[in-house]
Design a binder for these strands. Structure first.
Length: 467
RNA sequence: GCUCCCUUCGUCUAGUGGCCCAGGACGUCGCCCUCUCACGGCGAAAACACGAGUUCGAGUCUCGUAGGGAGCACCA
């Protein structure tokens, strides 16, 4: 049988990395088995679903390259089908109408709790055969026996039917609820493997019972462990990103994020670096472990740096250009982005950092970094800088070798160390104390800008010493 | 409260009864390289939650304790 997996997020909140990891595992499972991956938007909660959240799901999946073979399907467009199934259940005695009030429900729940029981519906309307149109509809769950969830990650988990109650499958306005829609969709869409967060494990026996009532075969399940914040708490917005797209805007590469995520709860010996192809061939859901894991932003950054360092420049071109755009920097005013990538790719953890560290190439800075200026733009270096200015100005060919020897020669002539001269020069032309190697920096900056800024640096020192 | 799940360095993990006085990775610390920041190289510190049991032998099996998580909605 052809393997078919799905990712079925709810657009009630912005898709974050927890959801993405679930999507990744489902996607990998499908790819590994040469099956199909289906995207389904579970938007039956019309109150809380937003268009923005739907868009983040679509854009996020596309950004990461987690392509789907079918979909996206929207549950709100399948209400007719759910109605049909609910009626079928009603007719064959697997469901019934219930008119118990909210007040009564709350009361029996409280009573159960105080008795030390699990809060459950007591089945009052179960055999009343009500026909009220605005009643909720409940699924008639078996009262005895048990349900075994044969989970590919959790193993066999046994639930007693007596622990379960008659859940609501349709609200009083007739709209279907999650446990019904998920079963109908997984059945209709021929899903063979359901891979989802283990917060759904407790729902699974109810869903299996509905499958049984429908005379359908339940899919295989794999409940993967949760992802926690670095503190080991539930993931929240400030733990990195409210939306997965934030990672893109922070200059993270899709390959890095996916590689990071695949190693959360899954491993293959000691291997840390996985290309997409390697993941697809190595991934086995049975190797996923059962315990929750905390995210570690530092490791993500390390992987991101790894992928930046090893990426072909042209792959970085588009995302980096987008970031400059986001920062309102006009890249026409400076070096070619590919040349920039050449000299920066070894030294930044994110593309955003690369962009930020490179703004001086494109924009003139207003003032120097205070500490750097204080430390390096001092009168003692005035004469050497002047001499260097002349030397750089006389260069006919503006390349690394010439730039470097001009600096070295000046330093030698004046018997100062290379660093003593290079660092003030760096501050003068970049505005701060950090940049790629000084010859690369000057070369890309160009002779004109270099001389202009060096002139200003010299004036700055002169003004400083006279005041 | 009830049901279900989890527990190896700070973090992600290897480990399927002897190969483990526990291996790798991120991070941390030290040294080297060096025009800054990085990269890179070398090295170090750092963990089997606890208690019983099974066994010649337990991180690995069993039970219990403690701690953590999830579910118990006219949310998904």
């Amino acid at each position: 049988m052809k393997i078919r997996t799905r990712f079925a997020p709810s657009p009630t909140g912005l898709l974050h990395i927890g959801g993405i990891r679930t999507a990744l595992f489902s996607w990998l499972y499908a790819k590994h088995h040469k099956g199909q991956f289906i995207l389904r938007i579970e938007d039956t909660d019309r109150e809380r679903s937003t268009d923005e959240a739907v868009q983040v799901i679509l854009d996020g999946m596309a950004w990461l390259g987690l392509d789907h073979d079918e979909g996206p399907f929207y549950q709100t467009q399948r209400f007719g089908r759910y109605k049909e199934v609910i009626n079928e259940l009603l007719e064959n005695g697997h469901a019934y109408r219930c008119i118990c009030s909210k007040v009564r429900l709350d009361k029996i729940r409280d009573e159960a709790m105080s008795r030390g029981d699990k809060p459950r519906y007591d089945g009052l309307c179960r055999s009343l055969n009500l026909t009220d149109e605005n009643a909720v509809i409940r699924f008639k769950n078996p009262t005895d026996g048990d349900v075994v969830v044969s989970d590919q990650v959790q193993g066999d988990v046994i639930f007693e039917n007596s622990e379960l109650d008659d859940l609501i499958i349709a609200r009083s306005d007739g709209s279907p609820t999650y446990n019904l829609t998920v079963v109908v969709d997984d059945m209709d869409m021929g899903i063979t493997e359901v891979i989802r967060g283990d917060d759904h494990l407790n729902n699974t026996p109810r869903q299996i019972n509905i499958f049984n009532a429908l005379g359908a075969k339940a899919p295989n399940y794999a409940h993967i462990p949760m992802i926690l914040s670095p503190e080991g708490k539930k993931l929240s917005k400030r733990d990195g990103a409210a939306s997965v797209l934030q990672y893109r805007d922070d200059g993270i590469l899709p390959e890095a994020l996916l590689n990071y995520l695949v190693r959360l709860g899954w491993s293959k010996g000691d291997q840390e670096i996985f290309s997409i192809d390697e993941m697809v061939s190595a991934f086995d859901i049975k190797d996923v472990n059962k315990s929750a894991s905390s995210i570690n932003p530092d490791k993500l950054l390390w992987l991101n740096q790894h992928y930046i360092k090893n990426a072909e420049n042209k792959l970085l071109l588009k995302p980096l250009t987008d970031l400059f755009l986001l920062m309102n920097i006009n890249i026409e005013n400076g070096p070619e982005i590919e040349d920039l990538i050449d000299i920066q790719k070894q030294r930044t953890e994110t593309l955003k950092e690369m962009a930020e560290q490179s703004t001086f190439f494109y924009n003139d800075f207003e003032e120097y970094d205070a500490n750097a200026a204080k430390k390096h733009l001092r009168p003692v270096i005035l004469e050497p800088l002047k001499q260097l200015y002349d030397s750089l100005k006389s260069l006919e060919t503006w390349d690394n070798d010439n730039i470097k020897s001009a600096i070295e020669k000046t330093a030698n002539d004046l018997e100062i160390k290379m660093g003593k001269l290079a660092q003030p020069l760096r501050v003068a032309v970049t505005g701060a104390g950090v940049s790629p190697s000084i010859d690369d920096t000057l070369r890309l900056l160009g002779q004109d800008k270099t001389l202009k800024r060096l002139r200003k640096g010299i004036e700055f020192i002169e003004n400083r010493s006279s005041s």
